[in-house]
């Protein structure tokens, strides 16, 4: 029987780039799963990372309740997936009711590239022969331990993946950090943008829209740089929407 997969859209995708969610739905469907998008708002990171644990718990309960009925949960964002898999169990560590429920959900929740590379392997349609550079989100790298998955999928789609010289630079987005310390956030993005551009890649891709908005936003401010897209758009066939921040 086809697994039922719940899609956690994430608030940035919902607002800024709905194409990513539609692409993720098609990609997960192509693995033979039935994709469902339950009622949802956000994973709770803004509250959790700004000291409002109570608020984060309230939202996390909503997410647990909305998604615990699925065989798998897929999230097109490393930081939101990290929130569910890594931080929800800690948030409910001493909660007799939600603790076990959060742990069960965490075990079945996957970031999109993780799902498509490791859980339900996908052969994406061959795309144009582009050279791409991957920006790893810090949550993906350190909370989920992923990075290889995106490269595997891009290679399967026929893209040439190039690597940046300096390893693993943070893009400076950092959730609400980007508006609390905008100058620092932009300066950190600048360093990341320079190392991404130095690869000469045709396209920057990543699996976290927060990072990509920051990177594309900085490239846009500087008036140059390669186009930036979410990896789901590239794996889903020829993208229809313009690159992030362009028309």
């Amino acid at each position: 029987m086809a697994p039922r997969v719940g899609l956690l859209v994430t608030c940035l995708v919902d607002l800024f780039r709905p194409e990513v969610a539609f692409a993720a739905m098609r990609l997960v469907t192509a693995t033979g799963a039935t994709v469902v998008v339950p009622r949802q708002s956000c994973c709770g990171q803004p509250a959790y990372n700004n000291g409002d644990r109570m608020g984060a718990c309230l939202i996390a309960r909503q997410v647990v309740a909305a998604f615990e009925g699925f065989d798998h949960v897929v999230v097109p964002s490393g930081s939101c997936a990290g929130m569910v898999t890594h931080h929800y169990p800690r948030l409910f560590q001493d909660d007799a009711e939600f603790g076990p429920r959060a742990r069960r959900l965490a075990a079945r929740c996957f970031e999109l590239t993780q799902y498509l590379a490791d859980v339900a392997p996908l052969q994406p349609p061959a795309g144009p022969p582009v050279t791409v550079v991957c920006h790893e989100s810090c949550s993906g790298l350190r909370e989920l331990g992923i990075g290889r998955q995106a490269r595997t999928l891009l290679a399967r789609a026929g893209a040439t993946v190039v690597e940046i010289a300096a390893p693993e630079p943070c893009c400076g987005f950092g959730g609400t950090f980007c508006v609390k310390f905008p100058e620092l956030s932009a300066a950190i993005a600048d360093r990341t943008c320079r190392s991404l551009a130095a690869t000469g890649a045709d396209l920057v891709v990543g699996a976290d829209l927060g990072c990509l908005l920051n990177i594309a936003g900085r490239f846009g401010h500087l008036g140059g740089g390669p186009p930036v897209r979410h990896i789901a758009e590239l794996l889903d066939g020829p993208p229809t929407a313009p690159p992030i921040g362009r028309s």
């Binding site: 859209v9 993005a189 936003g217 846009g220 401010h221």
Partner: peptide, 18 residues
């Protein structure tokens, strides 16, 4: 305002996903 001092803000590509 903070965001747009050192970055442009990419616009939504269309109505929200939902």
């Amino acid at each position: 305002g903070g965001w747009t001092r050192g970055r442009v803000l990419p616009a939504p590509t269309g109505p929200s996903f939902f």
